[in-house]
């Protein structure tokens, strides 16, 4: 059961459309959806003893085009993923990958030591390490009794 079909009736490489369908493909679709139809990029947030780690799958980005900011407890990552220069819209036979501007804004569950933040980009995965701020001592709030 092919999932994707070619649009053009004329295709010199017509046999390429007979993509091998794997048994797992159907499982992928029901469990995880078609990837390109989902939010881009996909993020995971992890908690370690002394830090939070956000990872995002953003393949094919120039590091210079990655914008990572932290403000008021929100981590914002944004950028643009461009289609290849030489590809014109009418030459695409299949287009499943995300192209265009994207932005994700994630609220962090705790206070962050903003001086210790760092971000790394490797093999298309962004990893932002956010050290937790040292927790302040609990403060007792006095309850005044009404009249």
């Amino acid at each position: 059961m092919p999932i994707f079909r070619w649009g053009q009736p004329w295709d010199p490489f017509r046999d390429l459309e007979r993509e091998v369908d794997r048994l797992l493909q159907g499982v992928n679709l029901t469990l995880h959806g078609v990837r390109f139809s989902r939010r881009f990029p996909q993020v995971n947030l992890l908690e370690l003893d002394d830090s939070f780690v956000l990872t995002a799958e953003i393949p094919g980005i120039d590091v210079g085009q990655l914008d990572v900011t932290m403000a008021s407890g929100f981590l914002t990552i944004k950028g643009t993923r461009l289609p290849p220069d030489e590809a014109r819209e009418d030459t695409f036979r299949r287009q499943e990958r995300f192209h265009g501007p994207w932005q994700r804004k994630i609220q962090l569950p705790d206070r962050i030591n903003e001086d210790g933040m760092r971000a790394d980009y490797r093999a298309g995965v962004l990893r932002v390490t956010l050290p937790k701020a040292p927790s302040s001592a609990a403060r007792q709030i006095k309850v005044n009794e009404g009249p």
């Binding site: 794997r22 797992l24 390109f36 030459t91 695409f92």
Partner: peptide
């Protein structure tokens, strides 16, 4: 195992 998204152009 995931089916990676692809683009193909001529």
């Amino acid at each position: 195992l995931f089916n990676p998204p692809i683009d193909i152009y001529e």
